[in-house]
Design a protein around this nucleic acid. Structure first.
Length: 852
RNA sequence: GCCCGGGUGGUGGAAUGGUAGACACGGAGGACUCAAAAUCCUUUGCUCGUGAGGGCGUGCGGGUUCGAAUCCCGCUCCGGGUACCA
């Protein structure tokens, strides 16, 4: 019942003692906005910094996750401003996307109307939180101005070859009725948005050539001040594998040789079979009657007995390939149910290049066409997948690495000496890899090779509510970009929203039929729109120069503000958004649209913890939201902000339980306690207790020192407790007759330290105490180093490493003196039975340890 | 399976080699009050003891160290990421 305090105060007429939360908060929000305090421009003389929270999808009023995010963001903006920096703090909305269009299909409300209503709600709650932004710079993905620059960038990427169209097997979500990027498909084969099982379809689609930057994207991760686990996730996603490619000749038809990729070229002597993916082009050749009859019969390379069944085999192969085709990815790839590996003998053998021996070629769906060459050499001795398959199909298993004594596993992938491997015997694995690659190269059978898991970024979406891809297909001129002066290409409003597999734009003929920008002939406009991750890949640069109407952003503005000094958001964007934004930054820098030396968009990243409830993430879709509104209306934004800061380390997840309300009420009580201190008349004690004054001054400076260190290391929960401790000390010192000067400066310190966290009440208190001054333009408090250096220290007395007692000593105490004090201590004497320590460990002035 | 995190009072957490449990929430007791609320004060890891005081204690088992919640090795449980990537 967080409203209790206020209601009670109001009822009792005690409002003179406590402040009117609503009135104070709204009044200060207005002052901040109208004063332009947090607006910054290019000519600002202060050192620049750029603090940014991730571009939000406007789903309506803010939820607790947003509140936490924007509290961290706002705190950073205000703290850096007090430290004297010119802080760029913009806000905008990632306003394209499926929910608006799905709503349109259901309710017939136009997505723009739907989206703008949600934007207004989110904006209102962000303002109510007291978060400050340079609202002049606000951008929305669906603004025509923004669409124009997105299309401009697309055309630039197209002209430089970084955007291209290709037919590809793509992920098709039947629920969303669109294709998805690999990144938007979960490992269980379901859609990131709708949770439907994703299907495979062959479609002609636009791609961005992110793989052109794969090495740079991988290498530059090292320099980023990002959470280690995000960096690891990105490295894993890029998935660099170093190995070798080599060609396996098909027995009897060497010109059909199949190329395989392996990271273990040292194990070729253990290859007892080979596998190609069901989609591998060789499958069609092997199952073609012509090839079977002529090629293999004439070549007479396969023993007759095997040949007799070849017709049958071709049928078997066809049946297998068909059965795989009809499986969804989830069934095909799933290993969770311990499903056995499937496959079929192809009817032909391939030659082991190292031994010259023929081994059977299988077709199996555990080999993926989309990775490497879609074909592998199988080494069951050292690869568990191959081992499992070999067991099922009764294939031989040869070990090429000596296993350790007592090894009872199946495939062995550890270190050891090479065995059964001809000229590689006796070498280590690493030596053997190099020797095997050398041998392959010398014999012209292969070479070293690097493969990546990362594929090009599929950006076409068959949807209406996205940025139209500005391309035109002309019979004569081919694929032509729209003229720059004709941008933006805007989607028409008069479309029908139906859940078909096509964008509503494709059925809008006046949009679809266009003139070729080159020759003027009748042509067809591209009706797909861009993935919304495109919008979030450059918005942070537009924020630097939002009014520019010549280019999306000037080099000068990017030079000034980029990169983002502090980026704040959820861990869920560890791969998708952050990888795409890094790619865009590099590509635009290389195209001359951004400064050449701008290689990374976000120098520092902070990923906040999730708010969970009943074990799952608090979210609209789970229906377990606790609205911030009721706290705004009762205890106020400051108390809610303070709760999010105090409840634990910012990076940790938080379980929202019934305790949360009590904690939030506790924060409101604490703020009232500070307010009471700050607004009481100064009382000058008749008899000043000098010792207590000194204690309070020292506590004040210690608190400033500790809070500042903790602000800088994002340990906000301990900042809050430091401020609470100082507040408690002020109450205590006051009643012990500390001087009014020491009390008042301690109160001022509390207010300054609180200012970034609870801006409204801090502003109100400072203004009341200092004649209308603005707390947020005050310089950040500096601790008095001289005072701190002179402060007494606590010397811990230990015997044998066990704590016995503590003494207050001078900070420059010497060993001799410390030992004298220790030995004179009755507890030490009692513990040291024979009186003389055999050894003494000094860590002065903190500790002395006497070892008996 | 692999890769990351993490396990500390009734609860959230603090302490990054040196007083374990800061700061809060909750509980208990008290002051003020006709009464309550609010506020303030005391107390609150477990345990033995009337007491002074003692013993135990950071998931479990070892180790390093004068000294370990903290570092190392092995295990266990929980959470997250990823998954036939050759």
């Amino acid at each position: 019942m967080p409203t209790r305090i206020l209601v009670e105060f109001k009822r009792r007429g005690l409002m003179s003692e406590i402040y009117d939360v609503q009135e104070v908060e709204l009044r200060w929000q207005k002052i901040w906005e109208e004063s332009g305090l947090y607006q910054v421009d290019l000519d600002d003389p202060r050192p620049k910094s750029y603090v940014l929270c991730m571009y939000p999808y406007p789903s309506g009023a803010a939820h607790q996750g947003h509140i936490k995010n924007y509290t961290f963001g706002d705190l950073n903006v205000r703290y850096r401003t007090m430290k004297g920096e010119a802080v760029l703090s913009p806000f905008g909305f990632d306003s394209f996307g499926l929910p608006a269009e799905n709503a349109a299909i259901k309710t017939k409300v136009h997505p723009r109307e739907f989206t703008e209503a949600r934007i207004a709600e989110l904006k209102a709650s962000v303002k109510r939180l007291g978060s400050v932004y340079d609202w002049r710079r606000e951008t929305k993905s669906h603004d025509p101005d923004n669409i124009k620059w997105a299309q401009f960038l697309f055309i630039k990427l197209f002209e430089s070859g970084l955007a291209y169209k290709a037919e590809a097997p793509v992920n098709w979500c039947p629920g969303c009725q669109t294709v998805l990027a690999n990144e938007q498909v979960h490992s269980d084969g379901t859609c990131d948005r709708s949770g439907d099982i994703v299907e495979r379809r062959n479609l002609s689609q636009w791609f961005f050539k992110i793989t052109q930057y794969v090495e740079e994207l991988l290498r530059d991760i090292d320099e980023l001040d990002w959470p280690e686990r995000v960096k690891i996730m990105q490295r894993n996603w890029i998935g660099k594998s170093i190995g070798a490619k080599m060609t396996l000749a098909v027995q009897g038809a060497p010109e059909l040789g199949i190329e395989v990729f392996t990271t273990r070229p040292d194990t070729v002597f253990g290859m007892t079979y080979a596998v190609i993916a069901p989609e591998h082009p060789l499958v069609a050749i092997l199952t073609s009657d012509e090839i079977r009859r002529q090629k293999f019969i004439d070549a007479n390379a396969i023993e007759p007995s095997r040949f007799v069944v070849l017709e049958e085999r071709a049928n078997e192969v066809r049946a297998f390939v068909d059965s795989v085709k009809n499986l969804t990815d989830i069934d095909r790839v799933s290993t969770s149910e311990g499903r056995d590996k499937r496959g079929v003998f192809s009817g032909v053998n391939v030659i082991n290049p190292f031994t010259g021996d023929p081994v059977p070629l299988y077709i199996a769906d555990y080999v993926l066409m989309s990775y490497g060459t879609g074909a592998i050499m199988a080494v069951p001795g050292e690869d568990q997948r191959d081992y499992d398959f070999a067991k099922i199909f009764g294939l031989p298993i040869v070990r090429t690495v000596a296993t350790p004594d007592g090894f009872d596993g199946e495939a062995y992938s550890g270190a050891g000496e090479k065995i059964n491997s001809g000229f590689l015997n006796g070498l280590s694995i690493e030596e053997a890899k190099l020797a095997a690659i050398d041998w392959l190269a010398q014999n012209d059978l292969g070479q070293s090779s690097i493969q990546y898991r990362l594929r090009d970024w599929l950006v076409s979406r068959q949807r209406y509510w996205g940025c139209p891809i500005p391309m035109i297909y002309c019979d004569k001129c081919g694929t032509v970009p729209a003229k720059l002066e004709e941008l933006p290409i805007l989607a028409p409003d008069d479309v029908e929203f139906l859940p078909t597999g096509e964008s509503p734009l494709a059925r809008h003929y006046s949009f679809r039929f266009a003139k070729c920008p080159k020759c003027g002939a009748n042509a067809i406009r591209e009706t797909d729109t861009m993935d919304t991750f495109v919008d979030s890949s450059w918005y942070f640069m537009r924020f630097c120069d939002p009014f520019n109407d010549k280019v999306p952003f000037s080099l000068e503005a990017l030079d000034q503000w980029m990169p983002v000094d502090q980026y704040i958001g959820g861990i869920e964007h560890a791969i998708l958004h952050l990888l795409y934004a890094r790619f865009f930054t590099k590509a635009l820098a290389d195209l001359g649209l951004a400064p050449k030396d701008l290689r990374e968009p976000f120098s520092r990243l902070f990923t906040q913890g999730m708010i969970r409830m009943d074990g799952s993430k608090m979210s609209k879709s789970k229906g377990n939201l606790i609205s911030p509104e009721k706290y705004f209306d009762s205890v106020g934004a400051d108390a809610l902000r303070l709760f999010h800061l105090f409840v634990g380390p910012p990076a940790d997840d938080f379980d929202w339980t019934s305790q949360a309300d009590e904690l939030i009420e506790g924060m409101a009580k604490f703020l009232s306690r500070v307010y009471r201190l700050a607004t009481q008349e100064s009382e000058k004690p008749t008899l000043v207790n000098e010792k207590e004054s000194a204690t309070l001054s020292l506590a004040t400076h210690k608190a400033i020192e500790k809070a500042t260190i903790d602000y800088d290391r994002w340990s906000y929960n301990t900042v809050v407790s430091t401020i609470m401790t100082l507040t408690n000390q002020i109450y205590k010192s006051k009643s012990a007759n500390a001087s009014d000067e020491s009390v008042q400066s301690a109160i001022d310190a509390v207010i300054l330290l609180l200012a970034p966290m609870t801006p409204h009440i801090a502003a109100e208190m400072w203004s009341l105490r200092h004649d209308g001054e603005i707390v947020h333009v005050q310089p950040w408090p500096e601790p008095d180093r001289t005072l701190l250096a002179l402060a007494k220290e606590t010397l811990i007395l230990q015997v044998g490493g066990k704590f016995k007692d503590k003494l207050i000593v001078d900070p420059d105490i010497e060993e001799q003196e410390a030992l004298r004090l220790a030995l004179a201590h009755p507890k030490i004497a009692a513990s040291l039975l024979n009186g003389a320590p055999s050894r003494v460990v000094y860590k002065l002035p903190k500790l002395i340890n006497l070892i008996p």
